[in-house]
Write a protein that binds this DNA or RNA. Structure first.
Length: 279
DNA sequence: ATTAGGGTTAGTG
DNA sequence: CACTAACCCTAAT
């Protein structure tokens, strides 16, 4: 009756994110009680936290028509945290920006769930488009739609999904709305969160993910997480190696250059008839 | 006692 | 009217 909906403020959202980063998902009561966040979250119940987190995580696309009748298996809610048997907790940042662009093929015929991931996927596409287009005044929805359509398979109602995604990202301060119609990436987002690299076009489909994720369990999630971590580590290792190699080559080039200078000098002296002694 | 997930309702374009 | 976000209900642990 006299209880209008209490919209979540961005401070509260931040506190929730921080709380999840600290305690892990599912520890709503802990987060709510934590003195670090309680001053912001005192008016929210643990259930509110859970619901809010769900809203932030999922929602990009949830085809309301199809309610996954196959089973009500707990579709892995993109479990950002994984508690390992030894009690260690692996946390991966915010729900929305944890963009792990895995292209599970999603045509209409295959009923892959993984819908929570779709949000991330669309975010990745948006970031890719924005950072490629690099419009100083931002890009409008149509521009983004056509850009993304050229590179990805998108559903028919994509425009709608996209605009809702855009609105959400703006609300979350990840994007900036310019001239009331265009969107661009907020600067500090690039610093604070790891946005997907725009030019990673060679995302290989990986076995763990290709099949539908129906009976997924904590083990499945942790295997997938471990896989991702390993892959990330591998990539970072490869990158580091590449940097080293580049440094080595450039050093070599420098040395070669100085040898060349020396040789030229010797040649010059010799051609003047001078006697050059070499050590 | 808490959580996850489905359902309901209010607010908004 | 469709969609989203906040809130509620309940089974499961």
């Amino acid at each position: 009756m006299g209880n209008p909906k209490q919209k979540w403020t961005s401070e509260e959202e931040e506190a929730l994110r921080a709380g999840v980063a600290k305690h892990g998902t599912g520890k709503w009561k802990n987060i709510q009680k934590d003195p670090e966040f309680n001053h912001l979250l005192f008016s929210r119940s643990n259930i509110d936290l859970k619901d809010k987190w769900r809203n932030m995580s999922v929602s990009a696309n949830g085809p309301p028509r199809e309610k996954s009748r196959t089973s009500k298996a707990k579709a892995n809610p993109d479990a950002p945290t994984t508690q390992l048997s030894n009690g260690q907790i692996v946390v991966s940042a915010t729900p929305i920006s944890n963009v792990a662009p895995m292209d599970a093929v999603m045509d209409d015929s295959s009923k892959c769930i993984l819908d929570g991931k779709t949000a991330s996927k669309y975010n990745a596409m948006i970031y890719e488009a924005l950072s490629t287009l690099k419009e100083p005044n931002g890009s409008d929805t149509s521009a983004l739609v056509s850009f993304i359509e050229q590179r990805h398979e998108v559903p028919q109602n994509f425009r709608r999904l996209l605009s809702s995604r855009l609105r959400r990202l703006v609300a979350q301060d990840k994007l900036e709305k310019v001239q009331n119609c265009c969107y661009k990436i907020k600067k500090d987002v690039l610093l604070s969160t790891k946005t997907p690299t725009p030019k990673q076009k060679d995302i290989r489909p990986r076995q763990i993910q290709t099949s539908c994720y129906l009976g997924d369990t904590v083990e499945d999630a942790s295997v997938a997480a471990a896989y991702k971590i390993a892959e990330a580590e591998n990539k970072s290792f490869v990158a580091a190696e590449a940097v080293k190699e580049a440094e080595r080559v450039s050093k070599m080039a420098e040395e070669t250059d100085s040898v060349l200078v020396l040789a030229k000098e010797i040649l010059e002296r010799c051609s003047r008839g001078e006697i050059v002694l070499m050590a």
